[in-house]
Design a protein around this nucleic acid. Structure first.
Lengths: 249, 249
DNA sequence: CGTCGAATTGACTTACATCAATGAAGGTGG
DNA sequence: CCACCTTCATTGATGTAAGTCAATTCGACG
C-alpha cells in the first residue's frame, strides 16, 4: 500500500524520499522556524531525503561518528545513554518537529542511542552543509541557537523535577509536558496513546516502573485520569496541574 | 591597592577594564577555543570590558532581558532558578572560562539568576555583535555550538545522576567533576576550597543539606577525603571514582 | 489456545527526609 | 581584643516515600 514511498529515484536508498522544508507542515516548529520564503528555498537544498526507521531501530547509536542532526518528521523516539556504571537511562522523548543528535556536536560522536518507539521517519541534516548554508541564511544560526538553548532550558526543568519533586508530581508534570507538545502539533492534548513502557517513563523520571504504575492508578482513583494500559485520557487538566505544582497557590 | 584597575578610561563604568581575548590565558577553554591568531584579532573587538561582581551579587536575574552571554573571567558562580511551585533550585556552578546565560537565547529572557559565590569578574559578550562577527569568523559559530552541545551533554549527565544514583554516588561524582575542572585550569585537583554551602550542593544534587554533610563525614571516615568545613582534600581519588560508579567493574 | 512481555497490585525494606539540638567560624561593634 | 550574633555545619532520633521482591493479570500475537 505504501510502495509509492519506495524509491522512485533508484540512486537513493530504498526508503528515502526527496522532500522540501518549504513544503513541510512542520516548518513552523522545526529548524527553519521564522525564516522567510526566500530563505526557506535555500534551506530546501539541505534536506535531501527522508529516512524511515522501523520501531525498535536506531537512527544512530552512542559512540558512532556525528555527521549531522535528524529532524523527526513523523513518529516517536526515545534517546537513551548508558552511564559510566553500566545502567542505562532515558534522557528524553522526541516527537515530530524536534531534533535528534544535538549532543553530538560537542565531541563529534553521538552521546546516546536514538531509538524509534514506533515506525517513524526522520530528515537527516548534514552538519557541515547546515553550517555553510547558514552563512547565507543568518536566521538559520539564530534558529539553531534557539533550539539548543531551548533544549538546555528543558533539561534544567527536568533537573529541577528530578531534584525536587515527588513521584506524583513528576508523573503529572510528565503527562502535562506530553499533552502540551501534542496540542502544539494539532493532536488531542487530552486523549492519547503512550508510546513508551512504564519502565522507560520510570527511567526518564528517576522512578521504578512499579512506582510509575502505582502513580497512574492513584491519579485514576482520584478521578484525574483514565488510564488503560497505554491509553491515557486526561479528565481534569486543572487538577493535574495542581498535582504537578503543589504549594503554588 | 587595586585602584589601578579602576577606569583609566573615564567613559567606561568604574569597574570596567578593556581586555582582549587574544591576551587572555583562558582562550583555550573559553569561547574563542580553536581559532587562529587572525580570527582572534577579530574577536578581540567583541569583548570591550570586564565587569566585576561582588560576592552575593547577580550578573543577571531570571526574567530580565537577554542581551548576551557572560564569560567567567575569574571567580565562581552558581545559577539558580525558581521553579513553578516556588522552590528554588541550583542548576549549576560555573568557573573561569565557562559561559553564563546560554539558556536566555531561546526566549530572549534570562531563565535563571547568576550569583557570584566569591568576588568575580566576567566578560560581557553582546549576542548581536557575536552573531555578526561570527559571519566573518565561521569557527566562532562552531565554537558556540560546541559549547552549547557540551552544556547539553553535561546536563544529561546530571539528569542521569539525579535519576539513578544514590546520595554517596552523587556527592562523589560532584567532587570528581569539580576536581577535574580545577585540574583543567591548572589548580590543584585534590585540595581545594568549596565555594558553595552544603545547602547549595544539596539543591544541585537533589539532596538535603544534612545528607550532604553526612555523606562528607562518611567519605571522611572511610579515609577517602579530608573535609574540614569548606576545605576538601581528596586522599584517594581511585576509591572516590569507585564510589561514584559502583557496579562498574 | 498458549506464550510472552508489559502492567498491576501487595507485602516488606530502606535510603533519605524531617525535626531538633549542638558546635564551629567569621564578621561587627563596643 | 573580646563578646556577641549570625550563618553554616555536624550529628542524632524518628518518620515516610519510594524501592525491592514477588505474585497475578492483561493484551497482543503467533
Amino acid at each position: 500500500m505504501q510502495t509509492w514511498t519506495r524509491s522512485p529515484l533508484p540512486i537513493l536508498p530504498r526508503d528515502a524520499i526527496k522532500v522540501a522544508c518549504s513544503q513541510c507542515n512542520l516548518h513552523e516548529i522545526c529548524l527553519p522556524l521564522g525564516l522567510t520564503e526566500r530563505e526557506l528555498d535555500q534551506v530546501d537544498t539541505l534536506v535531501m531525503a527522508r529516512r524511515t526507521i522501523a520501531r525498535g531501530d536506531a537512527v544512530f547509536r552512542a559512540g558512532t561518528r556525528f555527521s549531522g542532526l535528524y529532524a523527526v518528521r513523523s513518529g516517536f523516539f526515545k534517546t537513551r545513554s548508558i552511564s559510566d556504571d553500566g545502567r542505562d537511562h532515558v534522557t528524553g522523548f522526541q516527537m515530530a518537529g524536534e531534533l535528534l543528535g544535538l549532543d553530538g556536536i560537542a565531541t563529534g560522536e553521538h552521546g546516546c542511542d536514538a531509538i524509534a518507539l514506533e515506525d517513524s521517519t526522520v530528515c537527516p541534516i548534514p552538519y557541515d552543509r547546515l553550517d555553510s548554508i547558514a552563512r547565507e541564511v543568518p536566521g538559520l544560526h539564530l534558529g539553531l541557537h534557539k533550539i539548543m538553548s531551548r533544549e538546555i532550558v528543558r533539561d534544567h526543568a527536568v533537573m529541577q523535577l528530578l531534584a525536587g519533586k515527588r513521584a506524583e508530581e513528576r508523573v503529572a508534570a510528565f503527562l502535562l509536558s506530553l499533552s502540551q507538545r501534542l496540542r502544539q502539533r494539532g493532536w488531542s492534548p487530552s486523549s492519547f496513546l503512550l508510546r513508551m513502557t512504564r519502565e522507560e517513563i520510570g527511567s526518564y523520571l528517576g522512578l521504578t516502573l512499579e512506582t510509575v504504575s502505582r502513580t497512574f492508578s492513584k491519579l485514576h482513583e482520584d478521578g484525574i485520569l483514565e488510564v488503560k494500559q497505554r491509553q491515557v485520557d486526561i479528565l481534569d487538566e486543572e487538577r493535574l496541574r495542581h498535582v504537578a505544582r503543589p504549594g503554588a497557590d
